[in-house]
Simulated scan of single mutants.
Amino acid sequence: MYTSLLRRKTAGEALFDAVNTIGMLLVCFVTIYPIWYVLVNAFNEGQDAMRGGIYWWPRVVSLDNFQAVFNNPGIMLAMGVTVAKTVIGTPAHVFFTAMVAYAFSRRELVGRKIYMLLGTITMFFNGGLIPFYLLIRDLHMLDNFLVYIIPAMFNFFDLIIFLAFFREIPAGLEEAARIDGANDFSIFVRVVIPVSMPVIATIALFHGVYQWNDYFTGMIYINNMDLQPIQTYLYRVIALSSSNIMMAAMPGGITKSVTSQSIKLATMVVTTLPIVLVYPFLQKYFVKGMMIGSIKG
């Protein structure tokens, strides 16, 4: 048996492994290098970067690009809006979606199959942007911070993940709580939530990343610059050349070394770095929650 396990690979197996390795390395390079390129050029002096030829390391290291970014009060205000909507919107989404999923997991729920059918349809079809915009307008949520929170409180795909987990919770836990006099809401808060932390962490990661990266909501429903999130701000810097406005507000010593392109790159780094740093620490909960949902579902 040990001889068979330690046998040498055949030529075909060795070739297959080599092709797999080369392919994966190529995919990793194509994925990582654009990020590295932006980072390198963001830390390079703007005027020097205009000469080109910077691919792997900064040629003239400078922090002027980031100073230009942080000297603009708009980006710090936008960062605050993004942090606020992520911190508020993620728990609200997790709690509300989990509560609805718990109701769906109860077999005695009247019309449960109809609700599931209607919810499934919404995963593939929707009313479109214009009707949704009119709805947001009629609800008086245009130029309102709540537009980031209320419409995003429920997602049917996340409900399905919750539902697969809740259905596997032992019925004895809920029965014991009912004997002690707990109602449905008490059972949900005191019994279901504590034993569902892996799937809660998974959905929180899903929605937290969505809230941080969402630029479309601020672009469509928010005209007040004080309520725009950092990703919408980044969109305006890149697509609408707002970096020229940022340069106009810089002290004279800085404007000699930065360019509109270098400010754009530095802004990209500032807006994406926080979620990139946080994601690896949350990924283990994401993997655990998804595996539990797939096994028990």
Rank of each mutant, 00 (worst) to 15 (best):
S4F: 15
L6E: 11
R8K: 14
G12C: 10
E13A: 13
A14Q: 13
A14C: 05
F16L: 14
D17L: 15
V19R: 15
V19S: 14
N20K: 14
I22W: 09
I22C: 11
M24K: 09
V27R: 04
V27H: 04
P34Q: 09
Y37Q: 13
V40K: 12
F43C: 12
F43H: 08
E45T: 00
E45M: 07
M50T: 14
R51E: 04
W56T: 12
V60R: 13
L63Y: 12
Q67E: 00
F70Y: 08
N71W: 01
G80Y: 10
V81L: 07
K85D: 07
G89P: 03
G89A: 08
T90S: 01
P91K: 00
A92D: 02
F95C: 01
F104A: 02
V110I: 13
R112I: 13
Y115F: 15
L117Y: 10
L117H: 05
G119E: 07
T122V: 09
M123T: 00
F125G: 05
F125T: 01
G128I: 05
P131F: 10
Y133Q: 07
L135E: 11
R137M: 11
H140M: 10
M141G: 12
L142H: 09
L142C: 08
L142D: 11
D143I: 09
L146H: 01
Y148K: 06
Y148D: 09
I149G: 05
P151N: 02
P151F: 04
M153H: 08
F154W: 08
N155T: 06
D158G: 07
F165I: 10
R167N: 07
G172W: 10
E175G: 04
E175I: 08
A177F: 01
R178V: 00
R178M: 12
R178G: 02
D180M: 05
A182E: 09
S186E: 14
S186K: 15
R190P: 04
R190E: 07
V195E: 00
M197L: 15
M197D: 06
A201R: 05
I203S: 08
F206R: 08
Y210W: 14
W212N: 04
W212Y: 07
I220H: 01
I220D: 00
Y221N: 06
I222P: 03
M225I: 10
D226C: 05
P229H: 10
I230R: 09
Y233V: 00
L240A: 14
N244L: 10
A248W: 00
A249C: 08
G252I: 11
V258K: 04
T259L: 07
Q261R: 12
S262T: 04
S262A: 02
I263W: 03
T267H: 04
P274S: 14
I275C: 06
V276H: 06
L277D: 08
Q283P: 03
G289Q: 06
G289D: 05
M290R: 09
I295D: 04
K296A: 01
